Simulated scan of single mutants.
Amino acid sequence: MGVRRSLRKWARKRYFLSRISLLDTPMEYYVGKMMNGEVFSFSRYNDGEWNAILDKKGSNIDGHEYFPELGARLRESIHQPLKYIYAFGDKAMTLDGITIARYLKDHGINITWYNCNVFHDTNMKGELYPLIAQLRKMQIVMVGPDHLRGLGEKVFAYQHFIEVPSRNCFLKVDQIKEEVLEYARSRKNLLFSFSASMAAKVLIYELYPLIGDRHWLIDFGSLWDIYVGVKSRGVHSEFDWGPILKKNLGTLSH
C-alpha cells in the first residue's frame, strides 16, 4: 500500500509540473532583493489553501477550518492575481496535483508559480542564516500567534507584534487587516512577517494594493515555530534540530 500511495503522489506531482509553470528560485534571490531595498510580496498556497479553494470540508493541520468565505476570497486572489510572488507547495501537488492543474486550466488562470517551500527547505538544511541576518537589519512587524513573541529574544528583533488567533484566525481577518493598515499608514520599508495560516493569503492579497509598494508582505507560514519550541510539523520531530538552529542563528560555525 505504501508503494502504491507513493506512486500516486508521484504521478499527481508529475502531472501538475508537466502543465503548470513553477520556478524553483533559491533563497538568495529573495535575500538579495531585501538587501537591495527592492520591496516585494510573497504568498504561499499549499494543501490547506487549495482544500479551501476547492470547497472541501474540514480543517488544515493547525485546526483552521475551511470556511466558505475563506474559499471565496482565496479564489478571488488567484482568479484576479496581482503582481506579487505566488508560491505553490509540494504537498498540494502530491495530494491534488491533477485536480488543481485542471482547475487552473479550466478557469484560465495563468500564474507563474514559485516554490513555496524555499525558506522551509533551507531552514532544514541549516542554511537559513543569510535570511535571518538580513531580517536583523530590517524593521520587522510580526503578524502571528502569541507563541511567536519569543522570536524577539531568540531570532530577530521586531518593531511591532500583531497577534492573530491560533485557531480560525480567518474569523478575525478584517480586524487584522485594519491593524496592519493602521501601523503601516505613516511608515515605510517595514517587513510584515505573516504566520497566519490560510488567512495570510487573503491579507496579502487585500493589503498589497494599499501598502505593497512600500512594505514587504511575506508569508513565512510555520517557518518560525521551531525557534520558539513549537513542533507544529512532523518534520520538527524527525531529527535533532539543535545544531541546525544554531547554524541558522549564526551561533555555530558553518
Results as ranks from 00 to 15, higher is better:
L217D: 03
P81H: 00
A87K: 10
V173E: 12
Y29N: 08
L22M: 15
T94S: 13
R136K: 13
E238C: 04
M1W: 14
I226R: 07
Q175W: 11
I20T: 01
N110V: 08
V143S: 03
L210R: 13
G37T: 07
I176D: 08
C169I: 05
Y158P: 05
G2I: 11
L104S: 04
F88P: 05
L7F: 14
L135T: 00
F40M: 01
D90R: 11
V202W: 08
I204K: 02
I140F: 05
L210E: 15
S253T: 14
L95W: 08
L17R: 10
I132Y: 03
K105T: 13
Y114A: 06
T99W: 09
A52E: 11
L191T: 14
E178W: 09
G242C: 00
D47N: 13
M142A: 08
L7E: 14
D240N: 15
I218V: 14
E238Q: 13
L82N: 01
Q80Y: 15
R5N: 11
H64G: 09
E127G: 01
V228M: 03
L223H: 06
W113G: 02
S6R: 15
G126C: 02
E182V: 11
S186K: 14
V141H: 04
L203D: 09
R5Y: 14
A133S: 13
Y227M: 01
V141A: 02
G108A: 05
S43Q: 06
I132C: 00
S222H: 14
G89M: 04
Y66W: 11
D174A: 10
R12N: 15
S186R: 14
H120I: 14
Q175K: 13
V230Y: 14
C169Y: 12
V164D: 00
V173S: 10
S222E: 10
A196I: 06
I244S: 06
M34Y: 06
E206R: 11
K247N: 06
Y45W: 06
D225M: 02
A199D: 09
M27D: 04
A92L: 06
H215A: 08
H79S: 12
D213R: 05
H120R: 13
A184D: 06
H107L: 02
N168H: 05
V39H: 02
K57W: 09
W50C: 00
M142Q: 13
T112M: 04
F119S: 04
M198H: 01
L70E: 07
T112A: 02
F88G: 02
E127L: 10
I111R: 01
P243F: 07
M34W: 06
R4E: 15
Q159G: 00
R214E: 12
G152C: 05
K246H: 10
Y208V: 01
G221E: 08
P26H: 07
L104R: 02
Y129L: 02
F67W: 12
L128R: 00
L70C: 08
G108L: 03
G250A: 03
L210D: 11
I211N: 04
I226T: 08
